[in-house]
Design a protein around this nucleic acid. Structure first.
Lengths: 228, 228
DNA sequence: ACCTGAACACCGTTCAAGT
DNA sequence: ACCTGAACACCGTTCAAGT
């Protein structure tokens, strides 16, 4: 499927945790999470399934690993810059990473052993918010709000039936189930807004992010005080 | 597992789509999505796996069905009341439903055939926002922001390692991996805030929701104008 | 119409072995 | 140390049958 699948030649690179995890991400990117099995992964690596168990105790450990790889792809906010620009850059990056690897969103829900990249990521965001002058309590409020939005937006984007260049027939078959009598507002919104040529759901991200950054800005301007 | 599992008596209620779906929700609630298999579901219903295929063409159709059941559990905003109270009540209800059925969050990402309860739900929310005076474009902004927050918060809650009454040993084993030198802000936040006795992550929901409702209120007060 | 049995091509994983 | 073969208890699903 990727590269040259069936190369079980003698001169191949030996296995390693890193090589397995990178391949696992590629497999999931290509065919979704359901296509990532110990057997498909082994085949892609030119190896027998059991070989993987020499590097990972089970599949769960591989899933933990690729979630951490995904976190590692997100840009960290740097301590040097202005908080708003840094937090914004990180949010935009997180969203685009989750768009590339939309299978990762559902995995994040079930992982309970965060890896080093995940921890470093959270540490950097918390540090930036604290550095901007927010109290611990306000930092918690801000981070929960910000990341709920980022993850939630990623879910919505992944769930979109009419994604990047879906065939019009799919859109039509969905629209056909929308009876204007039963769902008047849904039909109005779909036909006059969401399905209009110019509409791009992705732009809702910038809107929501700006709104949230404005909220944080007011929280920071107000100092460490009580809830607004 | 639930009720009387092994009752394959002659006097049992005949199968139906509704009965299968309700049972499927119960199985997923009890043992997570991975425990919901055609075989486990059939056993719970006191029937052979193949019987299910008389009511559903495949497992995907069952998953579509239970997602719609979950949407059906969420309170709809009523057209009569004040928008803020209605939208707030609906958001609180959606969150608590997703907490009860946290397996549903990941399913929502992959379903592309929304059922009637799902459509009715979206229609009611859109209608409430439109009724409050928002333009179509603003309604789109508002709904994306609101639901990204609701779904994203649900994901965060589901991912919490220290959920409702997790054993302290689990918390400790996670905390042990937090080196204060490597992750100073994370350790600070965990020890001085998140792991404090009084802290309840759920309260971040009310904070975020109020903030978003305030934003909508300003959008509405400003009329149908441009982006803020 | 409603349900079943046997079978197929898959899973993750264990256990004992090869080099 | 690194990889394999055979086997086990699972999956979803097809196909042909029972009542």
């Amino acid at each position: 499927m990727l590269k040259e699948a069936g190369d079980s030649r003698e001169d191949r690179v030996p296995l390693s945790r890193e090589r397995v995890l990178n391949c696992a991400v590629a497999v999931a990117d290509g065919g979704g999470l359901s296509s990532l099995t110990m057997r498909s992964l082994a085949k892609e690596l030119g190896v027998k399934p059991m070989a993987l168990y020499h590097y990972f105790t089970n599949k769960d450990e591989i899933l933990d690993g690729i979630v951490d790889l995904v976190f590692g792809e997100m840009e960290l906010p740097s301590a040097g810059g202005h908080w708003r620009e840094e937090i914004s850059r990180r949010a935009v990056s997180a969203r685009s990473v989750l768009r590339r690897h939309s299978w990762a969103i559902v995995l994040m829900e079930s992982r309970s052993r965060p890896g080093p990249a995940t921890l470093r990521h959270h540490d950097a965001v918390l540090g930036t918010l604290r550095g901007a002058g927010l109290s611990l309590a306000m930092t918690g409020h801000a981070y929960a709000l910000l990341d709920a939005f980022v993850y939630g937006f990623a879910i919505q984007e992944a769930a979109l039936p009419f994604d990047r260049g879906t065939a019009p027939e799919v859109t039509a078959s969905i629209a056909a189930r929308f009876s204007p009598e039963a769902y008047p507002h849904l039909v109005e919104f779909a036909t006059e807004r969401a399905l209009q040529p110019g509409y791009d759901f992705g732009e809702e991200f910038e809107f929501g992010l700006d709104v949230i950054l404005d909220v944080l800005e007011r929280m920071i301007a107000r100092g460490n005080g009580d809830d607004p």
